[in-house]
Design a protein around this nucleic acid. Structure first.
Lengths: 338, 338
DNA sequence: TTGAAAGCGTTACCAT
DNA sequence: ATGGTAACGCTTTCAA
C-alpha cells in the first residue's frame, strides 16, 4: 500500500494526501478528514526510503561508537540510551556504527551513502581524522569530547583536566601525599584518547602544584586488569595511600586488589576518580567521584546536532561540563593523619 | 554526485555502472576497470535511500530494546555490542528502537515505514503483543527469549528455568537449606518478563524438590534497591544462608548489604545467579554464576535473522542455550557444615 | 483549495 | 556485452 492507493480511496490526488499529512499547504477540513480516515483504516505509513529520497532527509542520526574489541563501560551504555531517547523525542532514529581509529568502512558508508542526516562521535581522539574528514565535508556532526583544535567543531564534553585536578585537590586536602593515577589502557593513550590524555594532564599538574609524589599507570578495561594494576601500585610504592582513576571498567578490580592486600577503604586507602554515578554506587564502599553525567551529555549532543542539521551554517556551539565531586564513602583522611 | 555522473564520465550507461558494482550481470573486464577507476577517483557511493527504494531492501536491521527508564544492565550492553558487530560482518547496519510494553510509536514506525529488513527483539514477555503483531505480518524477526507459545517464531534464548535450578542444586549440594531468590522488579514481572518468570519457576521447583525453605523477592534494578532487598532478607529470615539472583544491576547492592550486616561471602553467606561473566568478575569475591553468553546470543540472533531475511518462508529456527555455572568464589559450604 | 507531473538516485527488465 | 527505460513511493513546483 502506498500514497497512491490512499489517494484513490479518498478520491483525491496524491499531492493532496501528501499535504494533508505534512501540513505544508492548507487542505480543506473536509478532505483532510476523509484522507485521515482512509489512512487510519488502512494503517498507512509513508515509506521511509521514498521519503528520504524525495526530500533528502533520512530523519536518522548516526552514533559512531568504539568497536566491541574495547570493553564497553557502563557510562557508554547510559550514554547510548540517553541519545536514543533524546533522538526519539526529536523524531529521529539512531543508527549505530562501530568505528575504529581511521575513517573506516562502516563509518564511510554512513556518510557517503547518506544513511544519516548527522552523526554523534564517541571516544574522540586529540588528533581525530574522522573529525577532520567531517569538517572538510561540512557534515553535521557533534563530538563527545574535543580534539586538540576544537574551535571549528561542535562538541559536548567533560573538562577532564579540571575533574582529575579536583580529585587530586580532594585527596591532598585529606592529607594524602603519595597517590597513583590509573588511566585507560596503553593502546587508547597511544591512539590519543582525549579523556585519557587530558585526565592525565590534570592529575599531573595538580599533583605538582600540591607537591605530591605520584605514579601513573595504564590499565586494561576490565576487573582482572584493575586487580593486577593495584598489585603493581602497592609493590612499586607500598606507601601509596590513594588513587585517582578514569577507568570505570577496572574499578571493581582495583577494589578487589585493595581487599586482597588487606587495605581497607577508606581507612587505609582512598579511591576516587571520574565515573558515572550509577556505577559509582555499585561498589562497596560507594565511590566518591566526579559523576559523569552521561544522560545529560547524550541529551545535549542530540540537541546540538538537531540544531546543526536545521541550520547548516550556524556558528559552532559546544558545552563543556564540569560536574562536581559527589562525596560518597571511598575517601578519607590519609592514614596517620586522622 | 550520482550514478549518472559516473556513467557519463566512464562513457557507459547507468545500468552498466550498476551492474559493474553489483556483479549481477557480466561486464567486460575492460569496462569494469574503467568504471571502477572513475568511482575511485570521485569516491562515489550509491545513495542508500534510492537503493532501498529500488530494490526493496534497506540492509538495516532493527534492534528493539527496552526504554532507558529501566536501568540498563551490563549484559544488555554486551549484547548490543555483539549484535552490531555481527550485523556489520553481514553488511547490515543496526537501527536502535526504544520500545515499551505495547507495539508503540517508535516500533510501529520501524515496521510500517519499512526502515528495516528485519528486527531483533530484546526483553521478551511471555505474552508479547509485539511478537504477535510481527507474526501476523510475517515480518522477519528474532526474539531474545521465547514467549509462552514460542512454536511459530524464531528466537534465541537462555533456559532460565534450568539455570536457576542449577543454582539451587549447587547451593543445596553445599548444604544450604534456607535460601532466597532476588528477582527483577515488580513491574517487570507484572509485564510478564520471560526471564523473570521462568527463572522464578526454576528456582521454586528445584527448591521444592530439594526440600529447601525459600523466600522470593522482587528488587529494583540498581544498587540501592539491592542493598535494601538484602536487609529485608536478613530481617525476615536471619537464618538465610544463600541467595540466587537474576538481577545483575542489584548485585553490587546485595554485596554491600551483606558487608554491612557483617556477613562474609562465602564464609557466612553464599551468592550465585545468572549474570554476564564480565560483570560477575567486577564484584569481590567474584560471583559464581551461570554466565550469560551475551556475545554468543547476539551473534546467533543476527545469524538467524539474516537467514530468515534471505528465506522468508523457511521453517522457524531457534537456539536454547544453557551455559554451565562458572565456579568463582562467592559460594561455599553452608555455615556450620564445613 | 486542488491536481498533474517532474524529479530524487537506484535497480532490473527488455531490447539490441 | 551493453543501452534505454520503466519502475520504486514519495515531495514539491507549476498550473488551474
Amino acid at each position: 500500500m502506498n500514497i497512491g492507493e490512499i489517494a484513490r480511496r479518498a478520491g483525491v490526488s496524491r499531492s493532496t494526501v501528501s499535504y494533508a499529512l505534512s501540513g505544508k499547504r492548507s487542505v480543506s477540513e473536509e478532505t483532510r478528514r476523509r484522507v485521515q480516515q482512509v489512512i487510519d483504516e488502512l494503517g498507512y505509513r509513508p515509506n521511509a526510503s521514498a521519503r528520504a529520497l524525495a526530500n533528502g532527509r533520512t530523519n536518522t542520526i548516526g552514533l559512531v561508537f568504539p568497536p566491541a574489541g574495547n570493553h564497553y563501560t557502563g557510562m557508554q551504555l547510559d550514554f547510548i540510551g540517553s541519545v536514543v531517547e533524546a533522538a526519539a523525542a526529536h523524531d529521529y532514529d539512531v543508527l549505530l556504527s562501530p568505528s575504529g581509529a581511521d575513517s573506516d568502512r562502516s563509518f564511510q558508508r554512513l556518510l557517503a551513502e547518506r544513511r544519516v542526516d548527522g552523526a554523534i562521535l564517541m571516544e574522540i581522539r586529540l588528533q581525530d581524522d574522522r573529525v577532520d574528514h567531517l569538517g572538510e565535508e561540512n557534515f553535521p556532526a557533534v563530538c563527545i569530547g574535543r580534539t586538540a583544535q576544537p574551535e571549528g567543531s561542535w562538541w559536548v564534553g567533560l573538562d577532564h583536566t579540571a575533574l582529575t585536578a579536583a580529585c587530586v585537590s580532594h585527596l591532598a586536602d585529606l592529607g594524602h601525599r603519595r597517590i597513583a593515577f590509573v588511566n585507560r589502557p596503553e593502546h587508547l593513550l597511544r591512539a590519543g584518547y582525549e579523556s585519557a590524555h587530558r585526565g592525565l594532564d590534570g592529575f599531573t599538574e595538580a599533583a605538582a602544584e600540591r607537591g605530591l609524589t605520584v605514579r601513573t599507570y595504564r590499565c586494561g578495561d576490565d576487573a582482572p586488569a584493575g586487580q593486577e594494576c593495584l598489585e603493581r601500585i602497592l609493590r612499586e610504592d607500598p606507601d601509596t595511600t590513594a588513587l585517582v582513576t578514569l577507568n570505570e571498567a577496572a574499578l571493581g578490580g582495583l577494589y578487589r586488589g585493595l581487599a586482597m592486600a588487606g587495605r581497607q577503604i577508606p581507612r587505609d586507602f582512598s579511591v576516587t576518580g571520574v565515573v558515572a554515578g550509577r556505577w559509582a554506587e555499585t561498589v562497596t564502599p560507594p565511590l566518591t567521584a566526579a559523576d559523569v553525567p552521561a544522560e545529560q551529555l547524550g541529551r545535549l549532543a542530540v540537541e546540538l546536532l538537531v540544531e546543526r542539521i536545521g541550520h547548516p551554517d550556524a556558528a559552532p556551539r559546544h558545552h563543556l561540563l564540569t560536574p562536581p565531586i559527589s562525596l560518597r564513602a571511598s575517601t578519607g583522611p590519609a592514614p596517620g593523619r586522622r
